[in-house]
Every structure is written in structure tokens, then in C-alpha cells.
Amino acid sequence: MADAQPLDLTEPVATPRTRAILARRLADIVGLPSSRITPRERWIVGDLLYDVIRASELELRQRCARRLAGLSDAPHRLLRTLACDKFEVAEPILEQCQALTDFDMLEIVSAGSMQHRLTIAKRENLSETVSAALAAYGEPPVVERLLRNRTATLATPTLDHLVGAALEESGYAQLLIRREELRPAQAFRLFWGCEHMDRFQILERFAVDRTILLEASEDIFPMASQESWSDPMVARVLRYIDRRQRDREASERSTYGSLEGVCEAMAMDGAHPDIVSEIANLASVDHRLVARMIEDMAGEPLAILCKATGLKWPSFQNMWRGLGRREDSDPCHQARKVFDSLSVEKAQTVLRYWNLSMEDKD
């Protein structure tokens, strides 16, 4: 790593003419084709040039960087040194040089400035490793440029990190939604920090039905029942697949008679803890999830809950009134748009992903 540290030079002293000519000649030799110079000779000349440029002024280092940027065989220590130099020296290397390896770029990311990282973030075909290193710095301009780079590859842990960061940096959400690598669990987690249009895009892309799963597992439900649902993992997965959302036994025990009845009570009494707990019980979801939906000032989460449980729009209106919110507000209209656009199965997919994420926190 020491070789890649930024140069610490005294700039006022001009490079002597002889040294400048020597540096140019050495750079010319380094750039000779493989038919004219052996790898060992190139390494030796590269070491000499490395020593010269480390003791030379900015202008000479810039000329060397421009000369070497287009070479595919330049010694990597030399390239890394120039690429970690001041940005006006490093720029042509960072923009043009195809000889930089992942190892080189990791050193540059670490040793360089934000300008260095911004330039690397727009390079073509960035690997998962380099993308992760750029994202780890948490610099919004760098992250946004990285997310716009369609040729960069983002690993799942990197996306997880950026989805979490999107709660603080709202500009990330739109860019993350467009990434092909984004997975449903990440998208539905991202949903909570998004504006309405971003939320709608997430639902359009990731809220899918479960027809194939239902058809493939239809005979497994009676098998699990015969075993008294003794396998927790089987029970967890089948809860996600099941067509039914409401807990029928809970409805029979409820003093409100049904989920619709709870919504009517909420319109009159508000969202007090007993009401929230009863909605969670009847809808077969974690009470923390219902609480989060109620705390969300937009209406989309509650609209998804209503659609997934087979409630009609008047039940949503009852819940909305119980929260003291206006029915002529934009959030209510946006919730209606989501309610009308989703099928019951697609809404269940979203709700169950959220519910599983709550269970994973236990």
C-alpha cells in the first residue's frame, strides 16, 4: 500500500530540463510494443521512471500520466502512483487506462480523493469488489454515479448497505429501483423510505402473484397438517405461500366479529393498542408491522394490508378516519391508486415479505 500513497512533493522547484527529457525517453521506452521490449526490461525502465516522477514537479507528472494512460503493459506500480497523485495528474489514468486491475483500483479508492472515486465510479465494467469499496465510503455523489453506471456490478451485501443508507439519502431510492440486481426483499425494505412514485414502481416491479408456488405446493399443506405443523421452517414457508391471509379462528374469538368490525371500531375509537393488536391477530401479521403501517403518514401500506386481507375500500376509509386523517388528501388518493392497482395475491406477496422480515428480527 505504501507505494500507492499520494505524492508529497515540493512543487515550486521546476523540473530541470535534462530530467524532463530523461522522463520522456523513459516513458517512451515503457510504451514500446511487446515485440520491441521484454517484460523484464519494461519493469526495469518502469522502476527508473517511478523514481524520476516521484521527485519531479506537477507538470512533468501530468505529461507522464497522459503518455502512459493508453498503455496496456505499463508497470502497475507506476500506474498506481500516478493514479493516486493529485487529481489533475491522475485523471487521464483513471479515465482511460484499461490496464488497472481491481487491486490497483482498491488502492486508488483508499488513497485518493473523492474526485478520484467519482471518476472510478463511472468506469466501465466495475467489479463487485471495486463497487463495494466505492459504496463503503458513503459519499452521495460517488454512490449516485455508481448506481447510474449500468456496467458496474453490485453484490448483494453492497445493495443491502445502500438500501439501508437510502433511509438517510433519499436520492438513492430511484436509482436503486432501476438496478437489475435489486431483489424483492431489498425492494420491499426500500419501500418504507420512498416517495409515492418510487413506492408505486416497486410494487409494479416486485409485487407478483404466487401461482406457481401454489400449484407446486398444494399437496404439501395437508402433509404439514398431518404432522401438526411440527416443522417451524415448513410452517414459515407455507405461511408465505398460503392463499388465505386472515386467521379464521381469531375471527371467531374476536369481540369485534371480523376484521371489518375492527376497522369500524377504529373509525370511532382511534388506533389504540387493543385495536392495533386485534388487526394484527385477525390479519395474521406481526403487531409491529401493523404499528409501522399506522405510523407511516402515507396510505400505501394500509392499502396493501386491506387488499391482502380482502377488505373493501370503506374499511380503509374507516381506518383512515380512525387515524384522524383527511380523505381528500393526496396520501389517501395515492393509497386508492395502490389499492385499485393490486390484486389480492400481489398485495399478499408484499405483506408476507414484510411480515417475514419482522420475524427475522426476533
Rank of each mutant, 00 (worst) to 15 (best):
L214A: 15
E181I: 01
T18F: 10
R150L: 10
L302W: 00
C263E: 09
R42M: 13
R24W: 09
L100M: 05
D28M: 10
F200C: 05
A207V: 05
Y172D: 06
P184V: 04
P157T: 03
A65F: 10
H76V: 10
L162D: 14
D51T: 08
A83R: 00
C306Q: 01
K346W: 03
E91I: 03
V285I: 12
H287D: 12
L147R: 02
L58Y: 13
L9S: 13
D104W: 00
Y256K: 08
F339H: 01
N149I: 03
R80C: 11
A65M: 06
L48M: 13
E88R: 11
S228I: 14
L9V: 15
L238Q: 13
A235W: 14
T309Y: 04
D286A: 07
L71K: 01
I21V: 14
M233S: 14
T119F: 05
P12Q: 02
D160V: 05
T18C: 07
E300F: 00
W313Y: 01
G112K: 02
R61N: 02
I177R: 00
T15S: 12
E180F: 08
Q334A: 08
G171C: 06
P314Y: 07
A298N: 11
T129Q: 15
R63Y: 08
R25A: 09
E195R: 12
F339E: 01
A90T: 00
E59K: 07
R80V: 05
V208E: 12
E249T: 14
L305Q: 06
L162F: 12
G324Y: 03
F339K: 01
A65C: 08
V143I: 15
V276R: 03
A173R: 09
D3M: 13
G164V: 06
A265I: 01
L311A: 06
A235K: 15
L323G: 08
A335Y: 02
N355K: 11
L311I: 08
I21Y: 12
M105N: 01
P6L: 00
W43A: 13
M105V: 03
E95D: 11
L94K: 00
R36V: 13
P140E: 05
Y137Q: 14
V143D: 10
A133F: 02
L203D: 04
T18L: 13
